[in-house]
């Protein structure tokens, strides 16, 4: 299953390489991100957040995540997306531990919320031209391994 999807994404990446802009992933075009999730075999649902900006809920390995859109004008033309996940750790993770995470790992950042839970975020500016599907796939892979590393770091079961 995993092999098949890997081959599909390689073929897709090659065709994207030939037609430059066609397959770009852009926050300004939420459907391009929905297409990305579909191609990756990830269930996703496009909706809106409380500011009426786009928002995508997706499920990865049984976990539910949301992708938020930022830098939007009137709920459209957004220029970035934010991968985000929270863990209800109930005050069991210290500021020292969160700081050690931020010192050691790249791309995203972690912080403690006012309730003593943790949030992990990773912001991607896609601007006017966006990222190629293959490059966005790298970004998404980084996000997933970041979540796994963070869960190891905080001892999340």
């Amino acid at each position: 299953m995993k092999t098949v999807s890997a081959i599909t994404s390689v073929i897709f990446a090659l065709s994207v390489g030939a037609t430059a802009q066609a397959g770009q992933v852009l926050a300004s075009n939420p459907q391009s991100i929905m297409d990305f999730f579909f191609e990756q075999g990830i269930p996703a649902q496009l909706g809106t957040d409380s500011y009426n900006d786009p928002m995508i809920d997706y499920r990865y390995e049984g976990e539910a995540y949301s992708l938020f859109f930022y830098g939007c004008t009137d709920g459209a033309r957004c220029d970035s997306v934010q991968f985000k996940t929270g863990h209800r750790v109930g005050g069991k993770v210290t500021l020292d531990s969160v700081n050690a995470w931020n010192a050691e790992y790249r791309f995203g950042d972690a912080y403690l919320t006012d309730n003593g839970d943790t949030n992990l975020t990773y912001d991607i500016l896609t601007g006017a031209e966006g990222l190629s599907t293959a490059d966005f796939s790298e970004v998404f892979g980084q996000w997933i391994s970041m979540v796994e590393d963070f869960e190891d770091h905080i001892g999340w079961q």
């Binding site: 390489g17 430059a20 790249r106 791309f107 500016l125 896609t126 601007g127 006017a128 031209e129 966006g130 990222l131 190629s132 293959a134 490059d135 790298e138 970004v139 980084q142």
Partner: peptide
């Protein structure tokens, strides 16, 4: 951190 990957980012972006 910014991933630029294989295609890179457009100059304006």
């Amino acid at each position: 951190d910014v991933l630029t990957g294989r295609m890179g980012l457009d100059n304006a972006d």
